[in-house]
């Protein structure tokens, strides 16, 4: 393109060789640098603003859990965490907090009481009560259910869980799910008035 003739192209020929090349380079560098930086800004903008490192959330008084007891905790994101107490030393290591997210491809496992195992419906993954994979893809790969860090402060138990939520204005903190009767906003599931199917005409 340098040899494109132009009517007012009139630099001194001797300078033209080196400086001409340099000016080409400077122009290319300026354009790449400027617009490249703008591109980088755009890329950074699209990447999540800050990583969700989670936050410490209160779970329960230590006294609530005896050795061998477990409770279910619902993280702000909706995930269920099983927290089991194994010892009575009053430290975080007494407890394990098992995520319900399958390490294989991220589906939610559920506890099968009859088989005493966690089961993942996506690819038939099976975990024992300690979260160790025993069958299916996680068993083959030797994966376990992820554990969340726990902290004991005084006589209170805290857990560090991700806080990102699917629905923007949902509640911002986690809560313990009552094992016998899951308590949720709205009607108390313990008090289901129609345990039997309604008879004809009963519901109008």
């Amino acid at each position: 393109m340098a040899d494109d003739s132009s009517h007012d192209d009139g630099p001194v020929q001797g300078r033209r060789g080196f400086l001409g090349q340099a000016s080409n380079f400077a122009m290319a560098a300026g354009l790449v640098g400027g617009y490249g930086a703008f591109g980088a800004v755009a890329a950074r903008y699209l990447y999540p603003a800050r990583p969700d490192t989670g936050s410490w959330q209160f779970v329960a008084d230590l006294a609530r859990l005896g050795v061998g007891d477990s409770l279910r905790y619902q993280a702000p994101g909706g995930e269920t965490v099983n927290i089991t107490r194994r010892a009575r030393d009053g430290v975080a290591e007494d407890f394990i907090a098992l995520s319900s997210t399958c390490p294989h491809l991220g589906c939610q496992v559920h506890w099968e009481d009859a088989n005493q195992r966690y089961f993942c419906p996506c690819h038939n993954g099976v975990f024992d009560s300690a979260g160790v994979g025993t069958a299916g893809p996680p068993g083959d790969a030797g994966q376990t259910l992820p554990r969340y860090p726990l902290r004991v402060d005084g006589n209170l138990l805290f857990i560090r869980v991700p806080t990102a939520r699917l629905v923007a204005d949902a509640a911002s903190s986690g809560r313990v799910i009552d094992d016998d009767c899951a308590s949720a906003p709205g009607h108390d599931p313990c008090l289901s008035p129609l345990a039997r199917p309604p008879r004809d005409g009963e519901l109008g």
Binding site: A26, M27, G30, G33, G34, A37, F38
Partner: peptide, 9 residues
């Protein structure tokens, strides 16, 4: 152009 690109940067 080179200089302005730099300035933009």
């Amino acid at each position: 152009i080179g200089a302005m690109g730099g300035l933009f940067l």
